[in-house]
Design a binder for these strands. Structure first.
Lengths: 190, 190
DNA sequence: CCTGAAATGTGATCTACATCACAAATTACC
DNA sequence: GGTAATTTGTGATGTAGATCACATTTCAGG
């Protein structure tokens, strides 16, 4: 399906934009295509954009001591990815974003987002909603991380994204769950 | 200091409201005073308000199996607390909010927030910013939970809220860190 | 379709933290 | 200010999951 249409339907669920308003919004995005494994945001760089996933799957991750990777988010179609901390504060990226599969994204600059938010009230409304949804999801995950064991968390993830099982290596699933790949492997065979 | 003034200065950092706009905003809040230990939101109830802390300290917590408590947030002055998931979705509360110390809060209903967000663009802007800040903080904490051991997390918390050490029982600090009170106790004496 | 690299499985061992149990200290309140 | 309730300290023991090591399988690219 057409990227513009996907974004339009995504936004329409929340914000009532006229066609002209949506066109104004959409014109600020740039369509980009990436191959599996390509990097979108590199830790240490300045972050200027956020990315709306049209197709494929991205991951947002943190690497500690150049050794261990933790995945903050798998971004599937109609989700948004970036280092939001860096994007909003102007700091250098501490998390990276890259492509788990081939992917198409619509990217929007920080400056353009702020401008359109000022110009069109309903766009600001949309972004408030979107961030709120992310916040609630993040709190839920934090709670699950504190409260549930690996098996439980694994089943939660699979319930939420069944398709993930086939498209991403198991190590990445382990990195999302915050567990070693060995432990996750042992979990399957039982 | 005057609750109205505290909220005004908090909002002014982000959103440029005229005095009339701010008054319109403020008039929707209701000032409430609570004693240490009093309950603000009970798990299972319907949630209709969010709470801006003027003085004192609240905690947002989840209790699992009626046994273990996990603290999602200590809400200090100028922070906001609620079960945001329940508040936005209309679901019953899954987390509770109560008072760690005597506290004064300004409460705002969900309906009033949405109404004033529609009426005054800058208020919507303010709430987008606030939620974004919460989202970023939540992501950071999630990462810390996955990446750092208890000692590290304890030191982080103390760096962020040194005053907490004196005003809350150590068990609550343990519940925030996601660790048993015994382990936390052993941490001190070393 | 072959070959090196990446991903996965599996055993042995180690460790941070949980849990249980009870004693000591602190705090709230009649 | 004395007594009960709550909070904290500390030992003994249990366990989920980490780490290391190496074998096996799968996959991607020439």
């Amino acid at each position: 399906m057409d990227p513009k249409q996907i974004l339009k339907e995504h936004v329409a669920k929340i914000a009532a934009l006229t066609d002209e308003e949506f066109d104004n919004f959409f014109d600020r995005f740039e369509l980009q295509s990436f191959k599996k494994g390509q990097t979108i945001i590199t830790a240490g760089d300045k972050v200027n954009h956020e990315y709306f996933v049209v197709s494929g799957c991205l991951k947002t991750f943190y690497i500690n001591d150049d050794i261990k990777m933790y995945i903050l988010q798998f971004a599937m179609p109609t989700w948004w990815a970036s280092d939001f901390n860096a994007l909003y504060s102007g700091a250098k990226a501490t998390v990276g974003v890259d492509c788990v599969t081939d992917a198409e994204v619509l990217r929007l600059s920080n400056a353009d987002r702020e401008e359109i938010c000022r110009e069109v009230h309903q766009v600001e409304h949309f972004f408030r909603w979107r961030t709120n949804k992310g916040y609630v999801a993040s709190q839920k995950r934090l709670l699950s991380m504190m409260n549930n064991d690996v098996k439980h968390r694994y089943e939660e993830l699979m319930a939420q994204y069944p398709e993930l099982y086939n498209i991403v290596p198991k190590q990445l699933i382990a990195a999302y769950l915050g567990v070693s790949r060995e432990t996750l492997s042992r979990l399957y065979n039982s």
